[in-house]
Design a protein around this nucleic acid. Structure first.
Lengths: 358, 358
DNA sequence: TTGTATGCGTTATCAT
DNA sequence: ATGATAACGCATACAA
């Protein structure tokens, strides 16, 4: 009807238009409503008639309109600024974690910055850097999240902290993790269900709370099956391949050797497998082996490892959601008893475990 | 002097100000110049007197001013939009790659989006998604970068493509990678320097151009040392642990077995190590073993693997730089012979190789 | 329920 | 070499 009018000012405008993208105003014009109505539809704030909504949505589809993030954040849409602080750039789970946080941050309308932190650095330096960039909240994946000095330092700098893959809660910070004990129990139950009655366990070093949890889960499952936990069937490693080899060596040298070995992580499980091979024990026929974490190692070795999969991506997303929600309304949370979310795990059955035949 | 005046309007402003961050205007006021001058200093565009520059820089430091990206991009600072298209969210090198691209994109004033792509998806769908988000250039890491259908589809959608960790150049796209042949040659020379004269090589499957390159490097090094390449000393695997076990088995069953084995990747090297263990060969005393890629596997096994380290982070950064430069001025580049950057590698010597004593 | 006016922090353009 | 002014695209506050 009335297209063609008001063309003159476009001439000057056009010079500066960045992309050829349609704007909210374009949508409004096509839908025959005001820009404000379009904005409301996009942010689905309430009180819009279905008719308006439909017209606008149609126009959006016709034009292929995508909101301009820059404009949106400039205009004051409260965008929170988060930082993911990492230590080891090539940690196995980092990519999955990163993608999870990045995607979720986008969906939460938050900006995610990346900041590296070496253990030998001063916490105050990190805090200063974060503050410079106007960061309000920090996502802290394992193993950094277990450093209470770091967490406290961050909190002292008025930064909200969400810990990812934390073994247990920590005062003053949001935490997301899995239930290590339940997972270890489930894996052990899996072995019991396969008919194994004598199961060796390779625990992790006592310095990590995680180790105790996983061991407790193992013992608990035996208990529930009315089996005594034989101390000779528990060896301790330090989460390395080599320590797994040695622990398995000890376990298998027992007078009454196990028909299955459950290691507290995949590296130790792979080490145990190396020992089995060396001793001429065929896996899984003569010895079932399973691990924990589902790292790349689990699928690299042969036979592939049955293991526990941590929900890394979910943990990353939930931590991000929690952090943004906290920043949006701290009042929602009891200040001294912040949430500690425990997400479900998954037992991934591969070729390294099989039914025990007597 | 004149602080205190103009306080009234701040009242209304303050409500909407996002962070408490100082703005360009604040800097200008403190430096006693116009906002425009500050902008020019920040973007170090030319024609600023040293005096102005100094004043402004001092003010920036005093206030801890950090430019607001949103405002900057809204105002028309030409920010290129890139997308990193990935296939496997938990690929070992992805985190390092991601960090490299993300950091470099920040330094280049480019925006990096993440987009996943499953092999069973239509290329046109991907292109549509990218165009919707106004993406101009795509970063394509291995193994996706070797899919010429994908690269062509992207190019057909008027998207610039930079391939990361590509084995060889491909028409119509920028490429960054390493020199596989040189790296294999260097690793072989390392073994020769250790006194090994009979070296077994585990090649990768012929379907990948990379395999031929690595094999050629191996042969070349032998040639340069005036050693004949014995066909019995070359076995072929498919880059899996298991195939490495089997290849090593064949190599070691030879009438004249090798004193060292060089596998075309770490997984196969680890598999070879498993075979050695099974045969009672001590590594590295009785058999030296080395791999390629320096994945997590290399440091997980025991003894740790001597291997070739790919410069992943550098490749990511260089690809990003190249892509941004291309988008900024395509004219700089010959349209049918785009750059193919080959970055230097590194031989990482660990415990799995040692001097050969006769 | 919908529209109008205004400003977010920066840069492009033009003027000086 | 520096400054004044007007956008950039959107959301908030307030009016209707």
């Amino acid at each position: 009807m009335n297209n063609g009018i008001q063309e003159e000012p476009r001439g000057r405008r056009a010079r500066r238009r960045g992309g050829p993208g349609p704007t909210l105003a374009d949508v409004a014009r096509l839908a025959g409503v005001s820009p404000m109505t379009v904005s409301r539809v996009v942010n689905d704030s309430a009180r819009i008639t279905q008719a308006s909504r439909d017209k606008v949505e149609q126009a959006i589809r016709d034009l292929g309109y995508v909101p301009n993030q820059a404009a949106r954040s400039l205009a004051g849409a409260r965008q929170h600024r988060l930082a993911l602080v990492y230590e080891n750039p090539s940690a196995a789970f980092l990519s999955e974690l990163l993608l999870g946080c990045l995607e979720q941050a986008g969906e939460c309308d938050a900006v995610l910055l990346l900041e590296s932190f070496r253990a030998d650095e001063e916490v105050t330096d990190l805090v200063a850097r974060l503050q410079r960039h106007r960061v309000e909240g920090v996502l802290l994946p394992a193993p950094l999240c277990d450093d209470s000095t770091l967490v406290d330092g961050l909190a002292a700098g008025h930064l909200a902290v969400a810990r990812i893959a934390a073994t247990q809660a920590m005062a003053g910070a949001l935490s997301v993790g899995m239930d290590d004990e339940a997972a270890a129990r489930d894996m052990t139950s899996h072995l019991l269900a396969l008919g194994h009655r004598r199961i060796g366990f390779i625990a992790g070093s006592d310095r990590f709370p995680m180790s105790a949890r996983r061991r407790a889960g193992f013992c608990r499952a035996l208990q529930q099956a009315n089996l005594a936990a034989d101390p000779a069937m528990i060896a301790t490693g330090d989460y390395t391949f080599r320590s797994g080899m040695e622990a398995a060596q000890a376990l298998l040298a027992s007078a009454n050797p196990p028909s299955a070995i459950f290691a507290s992580n995949d590296d130790m499980a792979a080490g145990a497998m190396a020992t089995a091979h060396r001793l001429g024990l065929e896996v899984p026929r003569a010895l079932s082996i399973c691990g924990f974490d589902d790292t790349a190692m689990a699928r690299a070795v042969w036979p592939e490892l049955t293991t526990v999969r941590q929900p890394v991506s979910n943990m990353a997303r939930e931590a991000t959601i929690l952090l943004v929600r906290y920043l949006a309304s701290p009042a929602e949370f009891a200040s001294h008893d912040l949430p500690d979310l425990r997400l479900g795990h998954e037992i991934v059955v591969r070729a390294s475990t099989t039914r025990h035949v007597t």
